[in-house]
Write a protein that binds this DNA or RNA. Structure first.
Length: 462
DNA sequence: AGATGAAGGACCC
DNA sequence: GGCCAGGGTCCTTCACGG
């Protein structure tokens, strides 16, 4: 039991960068270097000091799993499994009958976007291992990926993996400028296209293909060429009857990490199911480390396992937050095929946060808060937003994060107000040694809208 | 009893 | 040389005024 516990704690400490596929360097070698480099880092030390918290979280998860297993045992007693499976199968039939294969949905994803934009500005970087970002990598060039460097990885660890790694600072204005150029091109193929971040988008090209009497494959080929001709940036794409995640696109169309390609999923239930079957459950959007372990505990590792364990999932439906139907849809590869642009009124919050070298001095912390208030005021006025709740976020030098919020009856827009409320929230907490401060405003009001109440729309992915 | 606010987390790009 | 970001969304749990 004790060793099991520590194994799971290790897994937690290993962080998100483990378990991904490697390339030129052997993965076990990469893991070794990462583990070794992590040991010396402040982050790791802080987490060790912070073991209490880590252990607590880990224990809670373990408890949740034990509870789940117990509930399963309980539920499985005196129950006719095949009968339950039959019930689930009825749902499957129903879901299957509702499957809509009439739309052609494309997921486009710029290849190593930030890195390639930087490359355009500095051709010297060509064929060199480089990465964008400082503290953590935002993107790694393909050359750098061969050494195991990935986005989200701490830069000092990346340096260990690849000592020649060149680090380039983020140039967000560059990326967003390039992004809108690319999105404009996508819009020609679907005016209702939905951007998903700066470097990817969902499109419904059904109309376009019909009007231009062109096959989806050719259409996407043409679109990718249009982007390349205009920007010299390459884009990968996945074509399916409904939305498919970037992970899937990468997985299928790219033989692992080969960019600049496209792939069309066979528009046929059986083929889609075959494809989903061996896919790790972790690739499903919304399933992160925690849910992965929860599912793993009842024997669900792949999307196909959802069906193997359908009786148990059905019995435990409530306890587990993930919902039987949506899991079945996942397993069947059924997702939404509605592509619509984001609505302004869907915006829920706006915030700014900054990391810095640890500060304990009160006045210096106020100074940071002031800078953040100014940035936030700028973002809010540019976006045309006011808000009534202000949330202060701070991270200790031990990496523990806290938030403190205050709602007001007025609409906040000005930096003076932001600063005042920020201070008000921060002062009772002092003294503190902080490495991050942030402010976020919620309960927004759209200043560009007269004062109508927007119609809410739901944008479920699956 | 159900809303609502606050705090903490999981997840995503 | 740099030493684990910063923009979000959504969900759960707890407490409490009217």
């Amino acid at each position: 039991m004790a060793s099991q516990e520590s194994a799971s704690l290790l897994k937690r400490l290993a962080g998100p960068s483990s378990g991904k596929a490697g390339l030129a360097k052997d993965q076990t070698e990469i893991n070794r270097i990462i583990a070794e480099a992590s040991k010396g880092s402040k982050f790791y030390e802080a987490r060790l000091l912070n073991k209490h918290n880590e252990k607590r979280k880990d224990k809670e998860l373990t408890e949740r799993i034990n509870k789940l297993l117990k509930a399963r045992e309980e539920a499985l007693r005196n129950v006719d499994i095949s009968k339950i499976e039959l019930n689930v199968d009825r749902i499957v039939v129903e879901l299957e009958s509702q499957r809509d294969l009439s739309q052609t949905i494309v997921h486009v994803d710029m290849d190593a976007f930030y890195a390639n934009v930087e490359l355009l500005h500095n051709p010297d970087l060509k064929d060199k291992p480089f990465a964008v970002g400082y503290g953590v990598l935002t993107t790694a060039s393909y050359e750098a990926r061969k050494y195991g460097c990935r986005s989200g990885m701490a830069s000092h660890i990346a340096k260990k993996l690849c000592p020649e790694l060149i680090l380039v600072p983020n140039n967000f204005s560059r990326y967003s400028e390039m992004s809108s150029r690319i999105m404009d091109i996508f819009s020609r193929y679907d005016p209702n296209m939905c951007p998903a971040g700066a470097d990817e988008a969902y499109l419904n090209i059904t109309e376009y293909c019909a009007q231009h009497d062109i096959s989806p494959d050719d259409c996407v080929q043409e679109m990718r060429k249009a982007v390349f001709d205009d920007t010299k940036l390459t884009v990968s794409a996945g074509i399916a009857p409904n939305k498919v995640t970037r992970d899937l696109v990468k997985l299928i169309c790219s033989d692992r990490n080969k960019p600049n390609g496209q792939f069309r999923l066979e528009f046929e239930s059986k083929a889609i199911f075959e494809f989903m079957k061996d896919l790790s459950i972790r690739k499903v959007p919304g399933i992160g480390r925690v849910s992965e372990r929860l599912l793993d505990s009842i024997g669900v590792k792949t999307c196909g396992d959802i069906f193997v364990q359908r009786a148990v999932i059905s019995l435990l439906d409530k306890q587990f937050g993930l919902g039987l139907r949506s899991l079945l849809q996942t397993g069947l590869g059924i997702a939404s095929n509605v592509v619509a642009p984001h609505q302004r009124e869907e915006r829920k919050s706006i915030g700014v946060e900054r990391t810095f070298h640890t500060i304990s001095d009160k006045e210096k912390l106020f100074e940071k808060l002031k800078e953040i208030s100014e940035e936030l005021e700028k973002d809010m006025s540019e976006g045309g937003w006011a808000g009534s709740t202000v949330t202060l976020k701070y991270k200790l030098d031990t990496y523990q994060v806290f938030t403190r919020a205050k709602s007001s009856t007025r609409w906040i827009t000005k930096k003076e107000d932001l600063l005042a409320i920020g201070k008000e929230l921060l002062v009772p907490e002092l003294p503190l040694s902080l490495r991050l401060i942030g402010l976020r405003v919620t309960s927004l009001k759209d200043l560009r809208l007269s004062d109508s109440v927007g119609i809410k729309r739901v944008g479920a992915f699956w």
